[in-house]
Simulated assay, not measured.
Amino acid sequence: MSYKTIVAILQSEADLPRVLDFALPFAARNQAHLIGLHAESLPIAMATPMGGPAVDFSTELSAEAERRNGELKAVFERKCAAEDVRYEWRGYENVSGDSAISGIESARTADIAIAQQNDPDAEARMAADVEALIFETGRPVLLVPYTYQGRREPFKKPLVAWNGSKEAARAAFDALPLLREAGTAEVLTVDARDTMSQDAGVAGAAIVEALAKHGIDVTLRAEQSDGLSQGDVISNRLADSGCDLLVMGAFGRSRVSEFVFGGVTRSMLQTMTVPTLMSR
């Protein structure tokens, strides 16, 4: 198994270099087809004080969107050609100008999507709805921290957050190409409990065994939260262990609103310090 189709969500000129620093070497190593995807907002006709449409203003916005899309496309194509990566550009328009929303359909037929974590201090047009990408595509999403610097070589030490759920299982197996590439991984359990089918003392042993059968050197670590949030426990372990990739399931608390996240998921989306692969 390897990733053969990769979708890079490129929201703006700010995140394009960071996302491509991950996506291009990643695509080259996997001999994958890389899709660069960007959306611009649709120009909305506005009425003048006299009641007529502001045609000039709308035309100006449309021209600006076309210019920005063309510039991003040119950078993407130039970088792909330099890396000798097979590529494709998809440009869209939608009401919000959200590239993640426009990328949902493309990501559903890809092996993985790569996007940047949102910078909370960036202007609105720089933010993409990465939550929708995670929850609506059924595909793994690799998020790059907005603070991350440097070109991404293969991960060396992934951390797999494990709680025995279907979301955690999906993430662990979705990440197999990355785990095999690293050759090693740590499985982390937090506050494991005794259940009808498993003692807390052996929680995580089965997934360790399953991943080891893929040629991965896997270790198991159990932690107790001791008053901390589980998100803080995971973050502390990342810092202490030197792990450079987090693999975890994404959880929602409400079936009515799939964008209401569980505490750990939202915490990691907001505070991630290493690239994070999430699956739903």
Rank of each mutant, 00 (worst) to 15 (best):
S2R: 13
Y3D: 00
I6K: 08
I9K: 07
L10V: 10
L16K: 01
P17T: 07
R18H: 06
A27L: 13
A28V: 14
A32W: 01
L42I: 14
P43A: 04
I44E: 08
T48E: 13
P49S: 06
P49L: 08
E60M: 14
G70R: 12
A81Q: 13
Y87C: 05
W89E: 00
S96Q: 13
D98G: 05
D98S: 06
A100I: 04
A107R: 00
A107Y: 00
Q117N: 12
Q117D: 05
A122M: 05
R125K: 13
A127V: 13
A128Q: 04
A128T: 08
I134A: 00
F135V: 10
E136F: 07
V141C: 03
L142H: 01
T147S: 10
T147K: 10
Y148G: 06
R151F: 05
R152C: 07
E153N: 11
K156M: 12
P158I: 07
A161V: 10
N163T: 10
S165Q: 09
A172V: 05
D174C: 14
L176V: 10
L176I: 11
P177L: 07
P177D: 04
E181R: 01
T184N: 10
A185E: 06
V190W: 03
D191V: 08
D194Y: 14
T195S: 15
T195D: 07
T195M: 11
G201H: 11
A203F: 15
G204H: 08
A205C: 08
V208D: 00
H214I: 06
R221N: 09
D232A: 15
V233C: 06
V233L: 09
R237F: 15
A239G: 05
G242P: 01
L245H: 05
L246M: 05
G249W: 15
G252V: 06
S254L: 01
R255K: 15
V256Q: 10
F259P: 02
T265Y: 03
L269H: 06
L269W: 10
Q270N: 15
M278I: 09
